[in-house]
Amino acid sequence: MPDTAQTRVLDLSQNGGPAPIVEMSGLKISYRTGEMSFTVLDIDELALPAGLSIGLSGPSGCGKSTLLNLCAGLLRPTVGSIRVDGEELTGLGQGALDRFRAKKIGYVFQGFNLIPALSALGNVELPMRLSGSMPASLRRARAQELLDRVGLGTKARQKPNQLSFGQMQRVGIARAIAGHPRLLLADEPTASLEPGLGLSIVRLLIAVAKENSATLVVATHDPAVLTELDHTLTMSAINRAMEVSS
């Protein structure tokens, strides 16, 4: 039986590396169902360095998506602290968290999650509109530029249902990076794509993140994807709740 009391510290930003963009400390997420209490995430210390691409690996249900949602401020820890780009998220109210996400987070989803009522251009414009940080002409120009960058410049007026899966994910990447996020989160970005296509999408994601000076965190169970990234973290190494459940 593993020693669950042992403290695990995982700091990729040590040894003179880049300053951390994500710092977690004594963090737990627990749910209560009737009399039972389940802990799905239990992290002692974790620091993710800025400017790199980091993979989170592990089987389904190991807490990869939960960790990403925590970083995005979509989930609040039951206990502990999480700082993203210097901001302590546990202390932020709902409105401040919304503004934090609009300003600092980009999110790429497994199912693309494009808004079907909007064109490709509209989808890419959306985060910039939400953050309200850019005049309309610049916003439109940047959206078009990003679509050109992901190879969909000619598909700007197309609605998501007129695009292939690969094209939809490219639009998803352009949308995620549009608001100049500091942290780009990708949850199984290749799971809905064919293997060959998935790899090219991940390469595009890494390139776009680097061009925009964003830190990329990818949750994936695909070893081929992990080889493309700067670092890989296995969830079993950072999540003590996995040891308990096993």
Partner: peptide, 10 residues
């Protein structure tokens, strides 16, 4: 949920 995740307020 997507809108909320990419920064849309309530």
């Amino acid at each position: 949920a997507t809108l909320r995740a990419i920064g849309a307020s309530r």
